[in-house]
Design a protein around this nucleic acid. Structure first.
Lengths: 115, 115
DNA sequence: ACAACTTATGAATAAGTATTCATATATTAA
DNA sequence: TTAATATATGAATACTTATTCATAAGTTGT
């Protein structure tokens, strides 16, 4: 016999869990942003931009991919508000959208481990 | 004419970026863990477990999926050290692996937004 | 050992996604 | 306007991944 009714405790936790569960939209939104970070090419792009903004050509050099592939990935990162861009003449300069993203990256680096 | 040599500045940043770039293994590791978080079913499971450990059956109820699907996802989360488990009789109780994961989730919730 | 219950797993299918090539769009200079 | 440079995009292919069904494996009580 348990020190308490385990079934009841878990039932209680299920209710708590369901109550704290974000809306489907919330889950999707959060999810989309984690997903955006969960791909090697995109994560590389983020590290490349951690030192400051770069134009596409230089990002391509830093991550060693094809121009079109990088461009597609940049779009995904921008659509997910992880990057922002500004045009400067012929070039488009990309940079990390805001400090929030930097905090996530930094936290992940410390807590998820990343040599 | 710019206030400084923009080309040179970007070249400098490329070098900085490349120098700060984690190893391929580091990228993969970090990436895998973001990827694990970047899927609705798995993110739901994490929220379900945020209140404490639950057995598989109750997780299934909380996330409204099939048992086998949930079990596959639990394995992925466990393989990525995001969840841990312990057996208690017939049941297997899952819980968030450590506080690091909680911090990531909390940070993401605040910074990536999640109503 | 057997039956009941709980969780895990393999194989197959379906859905999603990254990359590539070719090309389009945008900007600048001549 | 034309040429040159830089970036973006559409379509196709290859790859990855989530889910399902069926079933296996682990646990408990009889």
């Amino acid at each position: 016999m348990e020190e308490y009714c385990e079934e009841c405790e878990h039932e209680r936790r299920i209710k708590t869990a369901l109550a704290a569960m974000p809306s489907a939209d919330g889950i999707e939104e959060m999810c989309a942003r984690f997903k955006a970070l969960g791909e090697p090419s995109r994560l590389k792009i983020l590290f490349a931009l951690s030192a400051g903004e770069l134009c596409v050509e230089h990002i391509v050099q830093a991550v060693e991919g094809r121009q079109s592939a990088v461009s597609h990935q940049l779009k995904i990162l921008k659509d997910n508000k992880i990057l922002k861009s500004r045009r400067k003449g012929q070039k488009v300069l990309y940079s990390v959208a805001d400090d929030h993203v930097k905090v996530i990256l930094q936290t992940a680096k410390e807590h998820l481990g990343c040599e």
